[in-house]
Each structure stands twice: as C-alpha cells, then as structure tokens.
Design a protein around this nucleic acid. Structure first.
Length: 598
DNA sequence: TACCGTATCT
DNA sequence: GAGATACGGT
C-alpha cells in the first residue's frame, strides 16, 4: 500500500500535486489544442499536445509512463477517439478523458463503454480541467486495491463498509465536475454494468480541514460577510478540487453555526454572554465587545484565555486573518471525546452541572505517546458559564449583515488565576470601550473587565496594530493575543512564562509541505512562518475529536512521503499519525480557526 | 443559465 | 453532525 501509493504517480511528484500532472491532449483542432493547453497550464499541469491520434498513440508508446492522463477529442480524422481510447486503455492503462462539442448520449455512453473516465463537453470549463487529477488519483488507488490483498487491508481500507476505498479515507469519489454532467454520466453507466464502478463511485466527501477552513474564512473575510457567495469564496480560495457546491454546503453550515451562536436563550449560543438582542442577525457581533474571565483548571496550572473578535475589523491582510473561524475554534473545544488526561472526567457539556468542563485532549498515535498528548481542561461554573449578562460594548454600527464573523483566541495566561478569558476584541479607534458590569458578574468567577485600548504588556513587542490587551489591570500578566499573526512569533519568544505554567503544547503538522516546513521530532518545532505556526495550532485543536480513531486506523501511514502527493482533503484523517511534536509557549490563535463544531 | 439559499438526505 | 444533493427562487 505504502509503496504502491508512493509510486502511484509516474511523474516525479512533489508535494505540489496535482501540479505537474502530465497531460496529453489530443485534438485535431489546433485552436482547441491551444486553448486546452493554456487552460491546463493554468492548472499547473504539464501539457503535451498532439493533433493526430496516431501521433498521440506513438508518443504514448514511446514515452511509457510519460503521462498521467490523456484528454482526447472524439472526432479526429486519422483515428476515432474511441479507438485511441481503446488503445490507451489496453496498452498504457491511463485514464482517458473524452471530449466533444456535443453531449449526445450515445456518444457519451460509447466513451464510457470504451473506458473513458470522463466525458467533457466543449467548451471545457476550467473547473473540469482542474479536477482531472482525480482520475489519475483514483486510478492509482484502484490499482493499489487490486494489487493488495483484501485481507491485509480490509481493516484499513474498508472502514466505511461498502464505501471501501473509493469513499473511504481518501474520500475520493468519481467525477467531481459539474453535477449535471455527473448525473448524465451516471445515467449512462446504469446501462452498462461493466462500467458500473464509475457510477458507484461516490462523489468525494470534502473534509473541511482546518487549513481548508482557514482558506474559507480568509475568503469570506476578503469578500465581506454580507457579500459572500459560494462562487466568490470558491474563486478566492483557489483550491482546484473544491466545487462551488462544497463551498455552498460549508457556507450553509457555517452560517447556521453563527446564527446558532447568536440565539439568546441557548447556552451554547450565548457564548460568553453574547446577547441576541444586542447583535441580532441584523446587528452583527462585530458591534460589541466584551470580555469575561473564568477560573479554569488546567492540566498544570496553566491559564488560558479565549477571546473572540469581530473579524472584519481585525483584518490586516488576507494571509493573516482570523475571523469567522475564530468563533468556531472555541466551540470545537467543547465537545471533546475520549479525554485522556486524568483530569478529564465525563466531559459534560459546558452547560451541564455546576462545573462544566472544556476539555481538549490531543492524543495522537505518535511514536511518542507520552508526549503527544495535549490536554486542556477548563472547569466553568455553570451558573456563570456563558452568562448572558456579560455586558456588551456597542461599537460602531455595522452594515446590515446576516451573520457576523467573530473569533476566539485561546491563550495561555501566565497567571495563577487560570482564567479563560472570553473577550471580544475590537481594535481600532471606533471602539467604544465602555462597559458595564453587573453585580453578579463582579462577584462571579467570571470577571468582567473593560477593554483597554492601550497596549500595556511589556512582554509583547512588535505587536501589530490589531493586537489587544483587554485587561488593563492585569496587562502585565495576561496576554491577549493579537489577531494579527504578524505578531505571533514575537509573542512566542516573549512569553516564556507560559511554558513554566505547564502550558506546553504539542503540535502536529500535516504534510501539506507546500505550506509547511516543520521539523519533525520532539521538542521545539521551527515554523517557517507565522502562518505556519498558526496553522499548526489550528490543526491541533480542530482535529481533537478524530485523532484517536485515526491513529488506530492509519498506523500504516506514518510515512509523510506517502501522502505528499495527495490532496489535503484526501488525507486529512491520515496526517495526524505523524506527530511532529513541538513544545511551544505560544498562545492559541488556532482557536480562531477551528472548525465550527457547535 | 448561473448562482444562491434552504431543505433534506446520506 | 458534516457534507452532499435537490430544488425553488432570483
């Protein structure tokens, strides 16, 4: 399996897959050849064009293993495209995509019957070309499946029962191009059992990894929450394999999530005391700011702090934003399964009982299990948890927005008080920092403190203008993480005390090596950039729930190389096996990016 | 027709 | 519960 996948792609693959996918385009029409070549190159594919089918066949024979996929027109003078398809299928066993200007059913069916993995209609859309790598990948997976004995891999490959490989961990399905075409193809395939595997292949189920979600969030912020649409987000995200439908679905859930948070009477949704009436659907959470401190028990007497902020206001640049995802992050903290830490109990929801817990258990099947666990636990007295009495700071009225993104930041506080600090961060001069504190709030474990416009921590330097210090009284002790990642590394070096308070963080990395330069091993992890840093923390928390299962299931996937070629969403569940542990004294902007698990 | 939002399904 | 899909609306 490992070996097969590793060698799965004939071309010299790198982390950048599917970039570099070697595509042979065959079309007798030079214009179309040119167009396709350009489009494919825009997808970062390696393109070879051929205007004659026979030449193409010769080329394929000549350069065995020289191509990953063939795109061929159906109508060609020297050789029927279907004939070429047959030859390729027999001799090279490469995935072939047929195309023609008409979508005549019989023609499409013929293509499918001859073994075409897809049938594109001219004019071919960029999205369709972007997705062709999937055929290559799927083919390789099928090959692997054939080669490997079922017994040896069943537990790994067939976790999803009948879904098996196609829809299992690799979450890989068939054609991801437009739904209409897929439907059409499927109907054809129903007529031919021989090729039923094509129709039985389910559409890939996109896993919204933290990274992916991060992109989503960034896109949303760039567009503006009131103006977002799936298409716009998709375009901005620039993730080739992602479809508008994927984004739409995610956006729907995301909006749902945010709206839930704004419901006043649901403890879950009144997180940190956000009142519905204060920033209802039409009055976004961006228009308030508040904070509360909650005594928290953490593993080793460390403190942490949550903060959420209205996203748009925190945007500095597209690459370093924390926004809507921010809020999700903290929510993903709440329902944690299988806590490993001894301090973790039954993990009631934060709304249950007198003492609610927020637990984060980070336990990976790493080779160093003793250090690969990260566990965070917060006990929150119920009667104060997410109190709706937390004062709201009215900020400048935002334009009407259905859902206002905001975010949380988890930060360790070098204070023995061990607080969870829920705060709304709102930088900028427009903030009205006035706050009122109810009597109950004053006496409760939740300390409500006014925001402070001043940046007072000596321990943070070079903080961007978006940095916030919330508590003027404890500015020296508490560190509020700036929402701008630009300041993170600085903070990291400046806050050694966190470490001493037991807030040691182990983080993992993925093998999205195009984005990461993590150095594996125990101890410190060097981050090539602050963004990487952030992303790693993001991953730490957002996958807490799945980690253990994944480890069990993917013990054979320890080799990062194995998935270096695989798109992120296909190995999300695999990547945590490779623990790149890091010890960090950093705050947890990751929370801001966590998936919105409400 | 493309796109969107929502409901519903898996 | 997350994500896909169907479907009506614009």
């Amino acid at each position: 399996m490992d070996r097969s996948l590793e060698n799965g792609f004939a071309s010299p693959r790198t982390e950048s897959f599917p970039a570099g996918l070697r595509v042979l385009v065959v079309d007798d029409d030079p214009t179309w050849l040119k167009i396709l070549e350009k489009m494919l190159k825009r997808c970062s594919y390696e393109v070879t064009t051929c205007c004659l089918a026979r030449d193409a066949l010769d080329l394929l024979r000549e350069r065995k293993d020289g191509f990953d996929i063939v795109i061929s027109d159906v109508n060609m003078p020297d050789m029927d495209g279907f004939k070429l398809l047959e030859h390729v299928g027999l001799e090279m066993d490469l995935p072939v995509i047929m195309m023609s200007v008409d979508g005549e059913t019989s023609r499409v069916m013929k293509g499918v019957q001859h073994g075409a993995c897809d049938y594109l209609l001219k004019p071919v859309r960029m999205k369709e070309l972007k997705n062709i790598w999937q055929h290559v990948f799927r083919k390789k997976i099928h090959e692997v499946k054939d080669i490997e004995s079922y017994e040896g891999n069943e537990d790994i490959l067939l976790r999803n029962g009948s879904d098996r490989f196609d829809d299992g961990h690799f979450l890989f399905g068939g054609d991801l191009s437009s739904g209409k075409k897929r439907k059409e193809t499927e109907n054809k395939e129903h007529d031919d059992q021989e090729y039923s595997d094509l129709s039985s292949v389910k559409k890939a189920r996109v896993v919204w990894s933290v990274d992916l979600h991060q992109k989503f969030v960034n896109a949303v912020n760039q567009i503006g929450f009131d103006k977002v649409g799936p298409k716009k987000i998709l375009d901005l995200m620039n993730v080739p394999w992602l479809t508008r439908e994927n984004v739409a679905s995610h956006l729907q859930k995301y909006r749902l999530y945010l709206s839930r948070l704004q419901k006043p009477n649901d403890p879950k949704t009144s997180f940190c005391g956000i009142k519905q009436q204060d920033f209802g659907q039409k009055d976004p959470p961006a228009s308030f700011a508040h904070q509360s401190s909650i005594p928290v028990h953490q593993n080793s007497a460390a403190s942490c702090s949550f903060g959420y902020s209205s996203n748009n206001l925190l945007v500095q640049d597209a690459g370093s934003e924390i926004h809507e995802g921010d809020l999700k992050g903290i929510i993903s903290f709440l329902p944690v399964k299988e806590p490993r830490n001894a301090l973790n109990g039954d993990l009631p929801s934060p709304q249950k009982g007198n003492g609610s817990q927020i637990s984060l258990t980070h336990s990976f099947g790493s080779p160093e299990p003793d250090v690969s666990n990260i566990s965070f636990e917060a006990t929150i007295p119920q009667k104060h948890a997410w109190s709706r009495e937390v004062p709201i700071m009215q900020l400048k009225q935002q334009p009407k927005q259905e859902h206002k993104p905001y975010g949380y930041t988890l930060l360790p506080l070098p204070s023995q008080q061990h607080n969870i600090q829920a705060e709304s961060l709102h930088p900028g001069p427009s903030i009205n920092l006035g706050t009122s504190i109810t009597e109950r709030d004053k006496t409760s474990p939740f300390e409500i403190k006014p925001l402070c416009t001043e940046y007072r921590s000596n321990s943070i330097k070079n903080v961007s203008p978006t940095a916030h210090i919330i508590d003027p009284l404890q500015a020296e002790k508490k560190i509020v993480i700036p929402q701008d990642f630009g300041a993170m590394s600085t903070i990291n070096t400046e806050l050694p005390s966190m470490k001493h308070h037991g807030f040691t963080q182990h983080c993992t990395s993925t093998w999205e090596s195009d984005q990461r330069n993590l150095i594996p091993g125990i101890g410190s992890t060097l981050f090539a950039s602050q963004e990487e840093l952030q992303l790693n923390f993001l991953q730490d928390y957002a996958f807490v729930e799945d980690v253990e299962l994944n480890n069990i299931e993917f013990l054979n996937y320890q080799d990062p190389e194995l998935f270096a070629d695989v798109p992120t969403h296909l190995y999300d569940r695999l990547k945590f096996n490779n623990d790149y542990l890091c010890e960090s004294t950093l705050e947890y902007p990751i929370m801001d990016q966590g998936l919105f698990i409400a």
